[in-house]
């Protein structure tokens, strides 16, 4: 089979100790049987390791942070498109998705395809809206509520008891064992991600995750469940193993059938001792461990690109159970000139 040459823009090159999904997504694309992918990295910071990984990222451009707004992003993408003729962009950060979703039609008219959830799908899975989401799609969700001021922390003891989980709008979650701790996390997380803060009932059990891909029409194109077998001190997966978990697969199928999810996603769930599944979070994009799916027989990044380009594809049916990933870190040697180029010209 001859492989088609395409150019794909990918964000999330922050392959650090708590990595972004960019590099794992790119590795899937590089292993594609259908495409020869030229990879254009889109970075926010000159220190994102992917910028310097020339064996997987062909060229990188800096793009403005999401807080600069859609117009700034579009202007920059127009420039990059002029240089590179992008076929597809895969955004990999939660915080940038709003802008990309809003811009998807404009990008399409420029010839750049994406495969993103709709704004409605994106919004209704927000942490703050999760209880309503759970009710709508028949998935159990731990009790939670939004707070906008530290004064509200006093009332939490009656409502949730301690410990409880303090979560940010986009990222970050910490377990607080006392009101003092809750206040400290409130400050820390709201300082970084703004308000509101989400307070969630603490649900003990085993965390199980699923990386999935919805076709936008109600079908689950691919899904692989995983349990973290080793975590870093930040709670991020260090190693994990694919599971045979029918119940979790059913939940993913039910959700995708219900909301017609389009694009990559991750379900973070707690399986309690009584084998009940509680939804903790839905990430509206591939997780950083998505390469485990590729490694166990389901190349989700490739499938996403094919769907973005309008191909109809058959859902993946199988994956290898008991496949593991073990993360490692790698010190790249980088010439100062490269850092100078990316930080002075915004390109490398």
């Amino acid at each position: 089979m001859t492989k088609r040459n395409i150019t794909v823009g990918v964000t999330g090159l922050n392959n650090i100790d708590s990595p972004g999904p960019g590099i794992p997504v790119i590795r899937g694309l590089k292993e594609s049987k259908h495409f020869n992918c030229r990879i254009i990295g889109l970075s926010y910071d000159a220190m994102e390791p992917g910028i310097y990984m020339h064996e997987v990222v062909d060229k990188t451009y800096q793009i403005p942070l999401p807080s600069a707004g859609q117009q700034s992003l579009l202007t920059r993408l127009e420039y990059i498109h002029q240089q590179e003729k992008l076929d597809v962009i895969i955004p990999n950060f939660d915080a940038e998705l709003y802008n990309f979703i809003k811009l998807q039609d404009t990008l399409k008219s420029m010839g750049i395809s994406t495969f993103l959830p709709t704004l409605e799908q994106f919004e209704e899975r927000h942490k703050s809206a999760l209880p309503a989401f759970g009710e709508k799609y028949g998935i159990k969700v731990p009790k939670s509520r939004m707070i906008n001021s530290m004064a509200e922390i006093h009332s939490l003891a009656y409502e949730f008891g301690y410990p409880l989980v303090v979560k940010g709008k986009f990222y970050d979650a910490s377990v607080a064992y006392s009101p003092d701790q809750a206040m400290a996390y409130f400050n820390k997380i709201s300082g970084k991600w703004g308000l509101p803060i989400i307070i969630q009932q603490y649900t003990p059990g085993t965390e199980v995750n699923l990386t999935g891909l919805g076709d936008g029409k109600g079908k689950l194109t691919g899904a692989v469940p995983m349990r973290k077998t080793y975590i870093t001190d930040k709670g991020k997966a260090w190693a994990g193993v694919t599971l045979e978990d029918r119940e979790l697969m059913k939940i993913a199928e039910k959700m995708v059938a219900g909301n017609k999810w389009r694009g990559g996603f991750e379900l973070e769930m707690i399986r309690t001792d009584r084998n009940e599944y509680y939804l903790i979070e839905i990430n509206p994009r591939f997780p950083a461990w998505v390469h485990l799916a590729t490694g166990s027989g389901q190349n989700h990044p490739e499938a996403l690109v094919r769907m973005a380009l309008g191909e109809d594809i058959n859902p993946y049916k199988r994956y290898e159970v008991g496949k593991m990933f073990v993360r490692y870190s790698w010190d790249q040697i980088v010439d100062l000139k490269e850092f100078e180029n990316i930080s002075t010209f915004g390109e490398l």
Binding site: D45, I63, P64, S72, T75, R76, G346
Partner: peptide
């Protein structure tokens, strides 16, 4: 100083 983690200037001209 080139600080990492701050707003980079590329494409932010509308600001």
């Amino acid at each position: 100083r080139i600080n990492t983690g701050l707003m980079n200037k590329f494409g932010t001209k509308t600001e």
